[in-house]
Design a protein around this nucleic acid. Sequence first.
DNA 1: TTGACATTCAACTGATCAGTTGAATATATT
DNA 2: AATATATTCAACTGATCAGTTGAATGTCAA
Lengths: 119, 119
Amino acid sequence: MSAPRTLDRTLLALADPTRRAILQRLSAGEARVTEVARPFDMSLNAVSKHILVLERARLVKRRRVGRDHFLSYRPEPLDAAAQWIAETRTFWASRLDTLERLLREEDEAERTRTSTDTP
Amino acid sequence: MSAPRTLDRTLLALADPTRRAILQRLSAGEARVTEVARPFDMSLNAVSKHILVLERARLVKRRRVGRDHFLSYRPEPLDAAAQWIAETRTFWASRLDTLERLLREEDEAERTRTSTDTP
DNA sequence: TTGACATTCAACTGATCAGTTGAATATATT
DNA sequence: AATATATTCAACTGATCAGTTGAATGTCAA
């Protein structure tokens, strides 16, 4: 089951290029908030808020050392999202296949019937 | 490359349980707007807007037949998202592994040095 | 033609989001 | 103690979102 809110938060957090860039940076190793913010053309506060969104989704963990906050990437939610998407995709695809197969069979029947009815 | 906006729209569209439920319904086959809306405890208009979000993300296609609009599920964006997540996850994980390996080696060196320095 | 049906359009509300600026807090440095 | 640094908090703006209601549009059916 896994509360859908978690998935919501993960996908929402990932649906933003700035946040994905932050995660990419952190996947290379821990960094402080200021370091993370440096490359971006926006205020430190703005980045701080993005980090909060990532934290809420548990994609980022914070370790306080004095005045420095070290941020690190947590892969678990991404793993979960990947698994959900993979499973769902397969399931939905199989249902589509079923439908398409049925339609194909119907078409087949139709064609046969027509060609027999009007030779 | 694949314009990140596409990914943004896909993930954003998926980050909502109502929209995921709509997709699930459509994965079982085409349906009209009213049919899709029926199970939900919200106005038809609200569902219509969710459908629009899904259309913008190209997860849903619309086929007009008279006054009826038949909606169908399009798997491509989900495939793309799954692929992106899978690749990214692997890449980020490998970078994490590298870092962890480095840290482990550092620790190892530290331990060795210490134990040699103070036997 | 009249009326019912399927759907969207338009306008509105309340919530959330992304960003800004300025101040506050806490820690480090001199 | 004074100052600089790292970070958040608070308050604000503008945009987008999720939902509502009521009207408009287009099509089917009697």
